[in-house]
Design a binder for these strands. Structure first.
Lengths: 155, 155
DNA sequence: CAGAAATACTCAGTGCCCTGATTAATTGCT
DNA sequence: AGCAATTAATCAGGGCACTGAGTATTTCTG
């Protein structure tokens, strides 16, 4: 008799949201390529030749997960990996032609999927949704390591 | 040069949100019990003696996942499982005393965590966040099986 | 220059999440 | 009663996500 209403738990809502998204992705975008895999491809289209760690940073995947995702992309020959001649610890990642094609093809579909996903909201509500969600996520992420706030200079 | 801004992708945002939540949960609620596990305990506090499938329905876990989660809860002796004498296909789930205690203890902490998680938003923004997120999730879930809309009568 | 510290990556272990196939029990229909 | 369809659960298999420990390479420092 002391049960809680899960609808008031943002974490539970986040999980449901992600599950719903996963489902829609599978039906509208691709059953082969997952959303995190697409994010990796996208990061490499934006900045070719990144190393593994940086890709993880860009798309929000930790070192282990990014290694797995990249492993799968390499197996499918959408990517390849070469040692950085400048720094033998790093692997440099490059898209194959097929990787670039796949990214281009899926970009169209993800746009359509996003529209369907957000269709229940009006245009203003959609911006609000992005704003609120992003602020919550940013804040929680910054609790992780109280290092420099977003947009800190490099080098 | 045809890269997309992931910040405009609700799915990517949902994933980040969930990751951030997971992190906060680990530090503020429990490293032993996960959020889905808590959801299962909570469902059984609300409705003791549910079967596995129904629990999954209540907390939004599919048949396979709910079986795994329940397995872990049983191993930790927070739950037990007995065949339904009325229907030998079902397992009926019951909280142990420790399960009830754990639920009660974590309930307090989850409330605190939710506050911290949503702290970047004002009170009105928080209700808006719930409303928008819930509508998106509901809509996407109903795309799954175009069965009866929410709130369909039972029995 | 040699040893210590930092960095990039890998590996092992745990948990969540889904689909499709299978098994066991019940219900419905002749 | 007997067989088909339905239903609850399991199992196999693939993918995402995190932590802690280990390896190799580079950089920092005395």
């Amino acid at each position: 008799m002391a049960a809680v209403d899960l609808a008031t738990h943002p974490g539970h809502l986040a999980r449901r949201l992600q599950q719903a998204h996963h489902l829609l992705w599978n039906t509208m975008v691709s059953e082969e390529i997952t959303s995190p895999q697409f994010a990796v491809l996208n990061a490499l289209v934006a900045e070719p030749g990144l190393d593994q760690r940086t890709v993880g940073e860009r798309v929000g995947l930790d070192r282990s997960t990014v290694a797995e995702v990249i492993g799968r992309l390499i197996r499918r020959e959408l990517l390849d990996k070469v040692r950085d001649p400048q720094d033998g610890r790093r692997y440099l990642l490059r898209l194959t032609d097929e990787g670039r094609n796949t990214h281009r093809r899926l970009t169209v579909r993800t746009a359509r999927m996003n529209q369907v996903f957000l269709a229940p909201l009006s245009t203003e509500e959609q911006s609000l949704f992005f704003d609120l969600t992003q602020r919550v996520a940013d804040a929680a992420e910054s609790l992780r390591d109280p290092g420099q706030p977003p947009g800190a200079p490099r080098s």
